[in-house]
C-alpha cells in the first residue's frame, strides 16, 4: 500500500505536468505545438516572437493554467481538512459560510467599485466564517456539530442578503452573476503570485498536522487519550482553510465540486491516512480544475462558466464512487 501510494503520488505530479502541456496547446485559437515551442524559445531569449502567439501563451494561457492549479490545490486541501474535521463526507470548503459571505461582499463591491470586489468578497467571507465560529464556540473550543449548523444558517442568511441586493438591481446584475458562476478568465501573473504566496504559507500547516488529522478520524475520545488537543487543532485548521479558501474565492468566484470530490477520489486510491492524502487530494483538485477550465475556455460558442464543467466532471465521478462503495 505504502509503496503504491508513493508511486501514485509521484505519478500525479507527472500527470499535472502533462495536463499543463496539453492545456497549453488547447484553446479557442489554434496554435500548433511547434509554434508554441518556437515562440517560447524566441520569447524567453527576447528574439521577436510572433506577438499574437506569445501573448496568448504567456499572458493568457499560462497565467490561467497556473491559477487553475493554485485554486484547485487550495480547494482540494481545504475540502479534505473540512471533511476530516467534520467527519462528514459532504464537507466542502464553503461549509463555514465562505461562499455566501463572499457573494454579499461581491454584490456590494459591484455597487461601490469593481476594484473593491475581491477585497470586499474576502472581508465578507471572513465575516461569515467569523460569525459561524463565534456561534459554535463553547468552552473556548469549536463544537464541530454546532459549526455545521451555524455554517448552514449563516450561509442562508448571507445568501438572502446577496439575493436581495441582486434582486433590487442595485448592483449590476450581470457582474454579480458572472462572479457567482465563478471563472478563471481574470487570471494574471499578479493574482497568481499572491495566491501562490498564500498557498505556500498554509500548506506546511496542513502537512504539519497530518498525524493529528489521522487521529481525529478515530474520534475525539481517542484523540484525547492519545494526547491530541483536538479542539485547538480543529480551530486552527478550519480557520486556516477558511482563510485561504476565502482568498481563492475573492479572485475566481465560487467554483463548486472541486473541494468536495477531490478528497473522495484521493481516499479511494491512497486510503484514509493523511500521510499521502494531504498531498494527493490537492493534486487531484489541481488536475480537475485545470482540465475543467481548459474545456470551459475552449468551448466553440465562447467561454462556459467553469463551475458547470466541474459539476459535469465531478458529479459522475462521485456517483461512481458511491456505487462502488455500496457494492463493497
Amino acid at each position: 500500500m505504502k509503496f503504491s501510494a508513493y508511486i501514485f503520488t509521484i505519478s500525479l505530479v507527472f500527470l499535472t505536468l502533462v495536463d499543463v502541456l496539453v492545456s497549453l496547446s488547447i484553446g479557442p485559437v489554434h496554435i500548433s505545438i511547434q509554434e508554441i515551442l518556437e515562440n517560447t524559445y524566441l520569447f524567453l531569449f527576447h528574439k521577436n516572437p510572433d506577438w499574437t502567439i506569445s501573448t496568448i501563451i504567456f499572458y493568457i494561457r499560462l497565467p490561467r493554467i497556473a491559477l487553475a492549479i493554485i485554486v484547485g490545490t487550495i480547494l482540494g486541501i481545504s475540502g479534505l481538512t473540512t471533511q476530516t474535521i467534520f467527519k462528514n463526507p459532504l464537507g466542502d470548503p464553503y461549509l463555514t459560510g465562505v461562499s455566501s459571505g463572499a457573494a454579499v461582499g461581491a454584490a456590494i463591491g459591484f455597487l461601490v467599485s469593481p476594484y473593491l470586489v475581491p477585497v470586499l468578497a474576502f472581508i465578507f467571507a471572513m465575516l461569515a466564517v467569523g460569525i459561524s465560529f463565534a456561534i459554535s464556540r463553547s468552552d473556548g473550543e469549536v463544537n464541530t456539530e454546532m459549526l455545521i449548523l451555524a455554517g448552514v444558517s449563516v450561509s442562508f442568511l448571507f445568501s438572502a442578503v446577496a439575493s436581495y441586493i441582486i434582486y433590487l438591481k442595485i448592483a449590476n446584475l450581470r457582474g454579480v452573476l458572472f462572479w457567482l458562476l465563478g471563472g478563471l478568465y481574470g487570471a494574471t501573473w499578479t493574482n497568481d503570485f499572491w495566491l501562490f504566496i498564500a498557498l505556500i504559507a498554509i500548506f506546511p500547516v496542513m502537512v504539519y498536522f497530518r498525524r493529528e488529522l489521522d487521529i481525529m478520524l478515530m474520534g475525539d475520545e481517542q484523540a484525547k487519550s492519545l494526547g491530541v488537543n483536538s479542539g485547538r487543532v480543529k480551530t486552527i485548521i478550519l480557520l486556516v482553510s477558511s482563510l485561504v479558501t476565502s482568498l481563492a474565492v475573492s479572485v475566481v468566484g465560487i467554483i463548486g465540486f472541486v473541494g468536495l470530490v477531490s478528497p473522495h477520489i484521493g481516499r479511494k486510491i491512497v486510503g484514509e491516512s493523511h500521510r499521502f492524502l494531504i498531498f494527493v487530494a490537492p493534486l487531484i483538485g489541481a488536475n480537475i480544475l485545470l482540465v475543467s477550465d481548459t474545456i470551459a475556455r475552449s468551448a466553440p460558442q465562447g467561454e462556459i462558466p467553469v463551475g458547470i464543467i466541474t459539476a459535469f466532471i465531478g458529479a459522475p465521478v462521485l456517483i461512481y464512487l458511491l456505487f462502488r462503495r455500496r457494492r463493497m
Partner: peptide, 24 residues
C-alpha cells in the same frame, strides 16, 4: 457569447465599443 481573451488577441479588432455603466 463570452469572448475568450485570446480570440480578441487573434482577431485584433480595429475598434472597440464599450456599453454604458460597466463598473470600472
Amino acid at each position: 457569447p463570452t469572448v475568450p481573451l485570446e480570440d480578441v488577441v487573434n482577431d485584433n479588432p480595429q475598434a472597440i465599443i464599450v456599453d454604458y455603466e460597466i463598473p470600472g
